[in-house]
Simulated scan of single mutants.
Amino acid sequence: MKLREEDLMDILVGATILGCGGGGSLEEGWKLIKRELKKGRKFRLVDVDDVPNDKIVASPYYVGSLGGNSKDNLAVKSFILLEEFIGEKFFGVVSTEMGGHNTAAALTTAAELGLPLIDADMAGRAVPELHHSVYYIRGYNMCPFSVVTAYEDKIIFSRTRDDLHAEKLVRSIVKVTGANVGVTSHPIRGKIFKRTIIRNAISLAMDIGKSVRKAKEEDKNWVLSLLELGGFLLFKGECVYMERREGSGFTIGEFELQVIEFYLKMRT
């Protein structure tokens, strides 16, 4: 399907909610989308089963902190770099995690390169480290993968000890350069991809975002609107304290929630 501007915003809002505070800033992600829309780029979403068994799909994203800058299209550059290393054009783009910024990175990489975004995700929510994915659970390594820094350093990791070590290596690059880096990883053939990936993740994000938008238009409680999509209300409360800081390539912090009312009955 062709994605309209309204669909794109719904996807990012839904991805931000699924990200549970991770996956980057919705505002920064929307800047990426708007930039591509102004250039007349087209956004396409295709089903997992549309991926040919013998073709490769891969995941472009940013690694760093919430405050990082991604204006230099580093995710796109890392995607192209990995294609060049493997010597094969990829069929499409896969989101690495749900979040306002990294879901946008997948969308805009696909749009800029004229590729489809696959209706899938590697985690189904935002995750703190690179090895937190369904591929890792199923025993598929993220190598080879590419990294491009804000200084135009271009790095290919053809092999690492394991994905946990790969996480440490990439995070070290972020720390040394002091900025987000673009990464493309998990070049996977369609046959393996279809039996591994989390399906319909982008559609779910779009449904969530649409539910929020409709509730706001009708001046309804958008949180309660999500219950119709299978969620449950655990408690009502407010955030009474929050601290956030940058450190070691992460955004680190803590927050405190004051519960006003518990809801013990959960949907099953």
Rank of each mutant, 00 (worst) to 15 (best):
N180T: 13
K2R: 14
T16I: 13
Y135L: 09
F193P: 01
S59F: 07
V46H: 03
F85V: 03
K42D: 08
T109Y: 00
L26R: 01
V46F: 01
S185N: 06
F232D: 09
L82Q: 02
I260M: 10
K42L: 11
L204I: 13
E112M: 02
L45V: 06
I11E: 04
K154P: 03
S211N: 10
A111S: 02
L204C: 13
A126L: 09
C20P: 02
V259R: 03
F79E: 01
G22H: 07
L18C: 09
R245M: 15
W30R: 14
E28P: 05
N73Q: 05
H131I: 08
I33Q: 05
T149Q: 03
K39I: 07
K191E: 12
D121I: 05
G114D: 01
T268E: 15
E129F: 07
A120M: 13
P144H: 01
F157A: 04
A111P: 00
L3D: 09
E246K: 15
E261R: 11
S248G: 14
I188G: 04
S172N: 14
L227Q: 07
D54P: 02
K55N: 02
I197H: 11
L8S: 14
R244N: 13
R125E: 07
T96H: 14
G92Y: 02
A75S: 01
V170F: 04
G253F: 09
S185M: 06
M122I: 13
S211L: 10
E217C: 15
A126C: 12
L227F: 06
K154G: 04
F255L: 08
G182P: 02
V94G: 07
G87C: 12
G182T: 03
A126F: 07
A201F: 04
A126H: 05
F43M: 11
G29D: 11
L32C: 11
D162M: 10
E5F: 14
A15Q: 00
M1L: 10
I252F: 11
S65W: 15
G114H: 02
Y62T: 07
K214N: 14
T16P: 05
G99E: 10
F235Q: 08
V134P: 11
D153F: 04
V76C: 01
L82D: 01
H131Y: 15
S185E: 09
F91P: 00
D50L: 01
E261D: 11
G24R: 08
F145L: 05
F85H: 08
S172L: 13
E217L: 15
V134F: 12
V51Q: 00
G237T: 07
H131T: 11
R125T: 09
Y263D: 05
D162F: 07
E228G: 12
V212I: 08
S133V: 12
K34E: 10
G114F: 00
T96A: 14
L204A: 09
G100N: 14
G67P: 15
A179T: 12
V240C: 09
V51P: 03
A58H: 02
D119Y: 00
K191Y: 12
S65P: 15
R267Y: 11
P116K: 00
S203F: 08
E256Y: 01
D7R: 14
D119F: 00
E254P: 08
T103N: 05
G40H: 10
E28K: 12
